[in-house]
Amino acid sequence: MTGSLATRVLGAVALAAVAVMAILALWISPADEVQGDAVRLMYVHVPSIWVAYGSFVLTAFASARVLWRTRSGAGGSQGVIADRQARHWDRVAGAAAELGVIFTALTLMTGSLWGKVTWGAYWQWDARLTTSVLLFVTYLGYLALRRLPAESRSRARRSAVMALIAVVNLPIVHFSVDWWRTLHQEASLELGPGGARNYTGEMYWTLLYSWATFTMVALWIGIHRYRVLRLEELAEEAALEELLAARRAEYENAGPRSTEQESNERAEQVTSR
């Protein structure tokens, strides 16, 4: 129920693009002289991390908007608008972070497969790999924080703060890991994931095309995820309304009572909570 004309068109185009990408990446683009067919993993591996980076940048941007919109002092009708916009950006941040985690996981999986055939090991303590895995775990933590039940405004704010800390921390992690590895590992790996090789011609175009395809797929899923997040909020609100209505009905059925009795009961409820 989260589809619309726009997303249906986008979904169809993305699906067709994936089919074309499979043909381009698996048949039409040539095998590498050195790596052979293994180079074809690049068309999944590299666009995945690009999409993941893009998602995390979007998360950070949306989080900054959330904090901007929920800063204190906005009251009245201004406050209502600000609150709606904050909720909007909070959903954007959540949907984008989830996509980022999925695509980082894809990068790590395809990367270790690629590493196995080119380096002979699934994992190397290379700077980029270590940074990626820390990035992955950081955003897993971010998603875990988002899942915890809390009042929506304060949840939006604390997740926004966490997303911004994660972004500030990223260069520190990258720099320190880079320094750590380059001091201890003389030979840098020229081939394989993250290798500093220039690809030209058909390989280059296939890579660019794959990136466009991945972006479309991610966009399609992301828009749906945003709408699902909206529905989740609505469901939460509906459940709360229902609970309140049930409470009210219970109260009215009990018949009229003295105000003293009522206030006593209310006080009891408050203290028992």
Partner: peptide, 24 residues
């Protein structure tokens, strides 16, 4: 992941009685 998102949207939409959250 895509299937999970779409299915979750359907279930929630049905429960809430919302047909579409589409273009509007």
């Amino acid at each position: 992941y895509a299937a999970w998102v779409v299915r979750r949207g359907r279930t929630l939409g049905r429960d809430l009685g919302i047909d579409t959250t589409g273009s509007a």
